[in-house]
Design a protein around this nucleic acid. Structure first.
Ligand code: DUT
Ligand code: MG
Length: 997
DNA sequence: GAGCAGTTTTA
DNA sequence: TAAAAC
DNA sequence: GCTC
């Protein structure tokens, strides 16, 4: 960090005004916050240890891909080329007309080719205005050179997902944050806002090892993408120097338009850029630089994309809102009222001030902000780091002079601190008592200065004193500091600068935060940890919670989670919080376990208890189970449809049970094969035939005995005459002639093409008719075939995308994401959903759910762009497939590819869904799935006269003849999963009991 | 013969 | 608006 | 392709 931070004026008018509104907060909450931080730190460390220990034990996924369909071979053959992944990945190329470059991946071994290809890519027009148009950038990881395997072992993605033979509840898999190990990843990327704001060198040089260790984190990646890119586009390398394989902090490659690119190249230096440079340059590209703060006050939610407003009480007028942002960061102050205290004006401040006069504007303030940021950061760069104080001072502009009337003595930081303390009467500006929000705090500031205290350091120390803190010159536990503020961004650097032997010398409960902390005490949920080793991991710590914690300091982390409404499973009675409806529950930290008998972890057919299970199942079927035929059952249920008819037998009505052996497995296999063929066909009719078959397949999986006749089969709900005949044909002959009839070349090819993300039956058919038969045909652009951006990526990572990942990996990637998100806002509620939440041992993708309680006056609106930026910078997100239409909206969804930090670089699909707090329950239901369960639930809701979607349960929805909504209806539930289940008369089911597929 | 879930993003 | 995806 |  550098001067920019410090360069801060005394509070502007707005700030003052704001501060006055919150005197209580300062006086009461801050202390609690510090205390809480202490506690959290301690707990966190313990937890890390536990996590590490637990890491080893993870279950091996037992997944049996069933039927190697006949197509697999063909498919495999056809796409053989695809598999190899270029050592360095380059992602899609953007709109480059020359489609051919795609071929690149083929030469797996050749890094250069990849690099070359990158060069080819042509720049794309950017749309300056909106982030909307941004293009996707891609990043690569330097690390993964190894061409991973080949397809041989993989399954053809043929029709959709390969099915598992067994879906079992996770045994003892534990999800742990693997990432903890290396600071690297986050180090680089995890900088929280502080860093974003101050592109200063986090360290003059990140420890070399860091780089090497985590390739993904490379600087290149961090710089690479402009924040608000749009999707699908691929990164475009700009110059040979960019060859990613070498770890150069690549010049930023962005998908951005030509102009940007041009700038980029000029700006960046091929060689090793200092982190400062990288950061700074990054800002250059930022079209609309992300707002300093991620959140927006609820009030503004609608329009002003501005920044955050101070919480609750005074509902600031629009205007105020704008100024607010400034508050958050130093920049703000400058922007709005830079003029204020001439005497204190710091250099940085100035710049900021100059910037956006516009800051005052309303809704558009967003734009202003970025500018401001940029201004601030850029300059900072120059002044920042190492330069000896004098030099720095010299550089400073006028303001500096002003302040530094007399040059401050050249002293090492701690000596300067002593000197400043002694001369505070003359060197420090008088600050109104009310502004001394650091009063009573003993603060130690550890700079990154190599020699004498730089101007930045001097200013920070001075400000600490001005704000009432008791400045401590050096580390000495006897001084009993309350908090340590540092510009260091990794433990090693900190240890060195603090003159200690190891971080262990600092009590775990003593917070080590960034400078940002100083001016953001009005945002209690922000922790501002300086580096990973001391990251508090407890989200949702609000003022109220802090108070509770103070009352009962001994709470364990788990207890706290529970209090916060994160309670794991069914037993969540403990959280009566109004905002946390009883049914609002998130994932258990521990792997989900099936209630009853744990599914056998042995391959189907070898379970010694199979008979027992079967018996049990049969009994259940007979006694308490209604024929879940989806509305057609005969059992008497209490629920009635909107028309008064009884409703029953919905698939969603009963909890699923662990899958066992099926007496009719051979039949199932054939029907599944036929289903896949129908799904690949383009007509609606085929779609519904497939749908119908899925019902039969599901029923057969549950059917306890070997079917003996068409009549018997027909008794199954969903099985009609035709299907019954098919069933018996398989049973009698072992074959299903219809399959051969359907399995024509066009369909097989369509299945192959549909394995490409973004390609469905229609597009596959279209391409087939155009003459394409193999993936290579598509790669080469034969027959004039054009792929969309997402399809290009889908084709490039064909195998990766069609391969399910181990549950453990999904958990690790998610943990890495979670940590980054919590740094942006620790109040964010983030969970991993989909098949992971249902306990599956393998996951087709990672489904991330994000929301945020608004009880503190803030929402998560606006943070997604920042989240994407950070995740890209961290090397986790690698390609974007589709971006939210309005990233600043409370509800939006993102789709892309990601990799496990430090992993092999295998691309994984990831979806991120953000929803408003009030919709969390409905969104949890939706995102937990499975899809069939959802459809069933929605079907039932519809039959009852309601409409269920990811936002809530609605009554009074009116649709016209074409089923188009005429009236939105009224939301009658949405915040609680349980409430929705209750209203629909569906017994509560844990995530793992919602498996219908 | 109508309905089979309901929605978002892309082109 | 249709296609694809969740 | 099945159900109402
Ligand atoms: O057509 C669909 C597809 C998905 N979903 C919901 C349920 C599903 O659980 C969730 C996530 O979708 P995804 O495609 O990721 O499915 P999954 O259940 O997570 O399985 P997988 O392991 O294949 O990702 O979205 C639906 O409601 N309808
Ligand atoms: Mg999923």
């Amino acid at each position: 960090m550098s001067d920019n931070d410090n360069d801060r004026e005394m509070p502007s008018e707005e700030e003052r005004e704001f501060e006055e509104n919150w005197p209580v907060f300062r006086a009461t909450v801050l202390p609690g916050m510090i205390k809480a931080m202490h506690e959290r730190s301690a707990r966190t460390n313990a937890r890390f240890a536990a996590l590490r220990a637990a890491r080893e034990s993870s279950l091996q996924p037992i997944e049996a891909f069933d039927t190697m369909n006949v197509f697999n071979n063909e498919v495999r053959r056809a796409r053989s080329a695809t598999t190899r992944r270029p050592p360095t990945k380059l992602l899609g190329k953007r709109k480059s007309p020359d489609v051919d470059e795609d071929s690149e991946p083929i030469d797996s071994a050749d890094n250069h080719s990849a690099a070359k290809r990158e060069l080819h890519s042509s720049p794309e027009p950017i749309d300056a205005v909106g982030s909307r148009s941004g293009k996707t950038a891609t990043t690569r990881h330097s690390g993964d050179k190894a061409p991973r395997g080949n397809n041989s072992d993989r399954h053809a993605p043929v029709a959709k997902k390969p099915k598992l033979a067994i879906e079992l509840p996770p045994a003892s898999t534990s999800r742990l944050p693997s990432a903890y190990t290396d600071s690297d990843t986050e180090e680089e990327s995890s900088c929280d806002e502080a860093q974003a704001r101050e592109p200063v060198p986090r360290s003059s040089s990140p420890p070399a090892e860091q780089r090497s260790s985590s390739p993904i984190v490379t600087a290149s990646s961090s710089v690479t993408r402009p924040p608000a890119l749009k999707k699908g586009k691929v990164a475009v390398p700009s110059s040979p120097a960019e060859d990613v394989s070498t770890w150069t902090p690549a010049p930023r490659r962005t998908a951005r338009k030509g102009t940007d690119l041009a700038n980029a190249s000029t700006i960046t230096t091929p060689g090793a850029l200092s982190s400062v440079q990288r950061a700074a340059s990054g800002d250059v590209y930022r079209k609309p630089p992300p707002p300093p703060l991620g959140m927006r006050p609820i009030a503004d939610k609608g329009k002003s994309k501005m920044a955050p407003l101070p919480p609750p009480p005074p509902r600031p007028a629009v205007k105020k809102a704008e100024t607010a942002p400034a508050l958050t960061g130093k920049d703000k102050a400058s922007g709005s009222k830079g003029v204020k205290n001439p005497p204190l004006v710091l250099p940085t401040m100035k710049k900021a001030a100059s910037t956006p006069v516009a800051s005052v504007s309303t809704s558009k303030s967003a734009s202003a902000r970025p500018t401001a940021k940029k201004a601030a950061s850029t300059p900072a760069t120059s002044a920042s780091t190492s330069k000896p104080a004098p030099a720095a001072a010299a550089k400073k502009k006028a303001p500096a002079k002003k302040n530094a009337k007399e040059k401050p003595p050249r002293l090492v930081p701690k000596e300067y601190a002593r000197w400043l303390i002694e001369n505070r009467e003359t060197k420090c500006r008088k600050c109104p008592e009310k502004d001394k929000h650091l009063k009573g705090k003993r603060i130690l500031f550890i700079s990154i200065d190599f020699t004498t205290a730089t101007e930045g350091t001097r200013n920070k120390m001075r400000l600490l004193l001005e704000y009432g803190a008791e400045l401590l010159p050096e580390w000495n536990k006897d001084y009993q500091p309350n908090v340590i503020i540092t510009d260091c961004r990794n433990a090693n650097q900190f240890v060195e600068q603090a003159g200690i032997k190891s971080l262990d010398e600092i009590p775990e409960e003593l917070p080590i935060v960034t400078w940002e902390w100083t001016f953001r005490t009005h945002r209690p949920h922000m922790d501002f940890p300086a580096f990973d080793e001391r990251i508090p991991m407890i989200p949702g710590l609000t003022k109220e919670r802090i108070a509770e914690l103070d009352a009962k300091p001994k709470k364990t982390r788990e207890e706290i989670r529970r209090m916060l409404g994160y309670d794991s499973n069914s037993s969540r009675e403990s959280s009566p919080e109004p905002d946390h409806p009883p049914s609002f529950q998130f994932l258990p930290k521990e792997p989900i376990k099936p209630v009853a008998p744990v599914a056998p972890l042995v391959p189907a057919g070898s379970d010694p208890l199979a008979e027992f299970y079967e018996q049990a199942r049969t009994e259940r079927n007979a006694e308490e189970e209604s024929p879940n035929g989806e509305g057609g059952g005969s059992r008497a249920m209490v629920r009635h449809g909107s028309d008064g008819k009884e409703l029953k037998g919905f698939l969603c009505d009963g909890a699923s049970k662990p899958q066992e052996n099926c007496p009719n497995q051979d039949v199932i296999d054939k029907l599944v094969e036929l289903q896949g063929l129908h799904e690949a066909k383009p007509t609606e009719d085929d779609k519904w035939r497939a749908f119908s078959l899925s019902k039969t397949i599901r029923a057969l999986k549950e059917y306890p005995t070997r079917l003996k006749s068409e009549e018997e089969a027909k008794k199954i709900v969903g099985v009609g005459v035709k299907t019954a005949q098919k069933i018996m044909e398989v049973i009698r002959t072992g074959n299903l002639r219809r399959i051969k009839h359907e399995r024509t070349e066009d369909i097989v090819v369509a299945q192959l093409f549909q394995g490409i993300y973004g390609v469905g039956p229609a597009k596959a058919r279209e391409w087939y008719l155009m003459g394409a038969r193999t993936l290579d045909d598509l790669r080469e652009g034969k027959f004039g075939i054009k792929l969309s951006d997402a399809q290009k990526i889908g084709l490039q990572y064909y195998d990766d995308i069609n391969t399910r990942m181990p549950r453990k990996e999904a958990g690790e990637i998610f943990d890495a994401i979670k940590r980054i998100v919590w740094r942006i806002d620790s109040q964010i509620v983030i969970e991993i959903m989909g098949s992971y939440r249902r306990g599956k041992e393998t996951c087709g993708d990672i489904d991330v759910f994000i929301t945020r309680p608004k009880d503190d006056g803030w929402t998560h609106a606006g943070i997604l762009p920042r989240v994407f930026e950070k995740l890209h910078a961290a090397g986790i997100l690698t390609e974007d497939l589709s971006m939210p239409e309005d990233p600043d909206a409370l509800e939006c969804c993102y789709r892309g590819l990601c990799v496990l930090p430090g992993g092999k670089g295998v691309r994984r699909r990831i979806d991120i869904l953000a929803v408003p707090w009030e919709s969390r329950g409905a969104a949890l239901i939706y995102y937990t799935g499975d899809d069939i369960f959802n459809r069933s639930l929605r079907l039932k809701a519809g039959k009852m006269g309601y409409s269920l979607n990811q936002r809530g349960l609605f009554a009074g929805v009116v649709r016209d003849a074409d089923r188009v909504k005429t009236n939105k209806g009224t939301m009658i539930a949405g915040a609680s999963e349980r409430e929705i289940f209750e209203i629909l008369g569906v017994p509560w089911q844990e995530p793992w009991q919602r498996v219908r597929n």
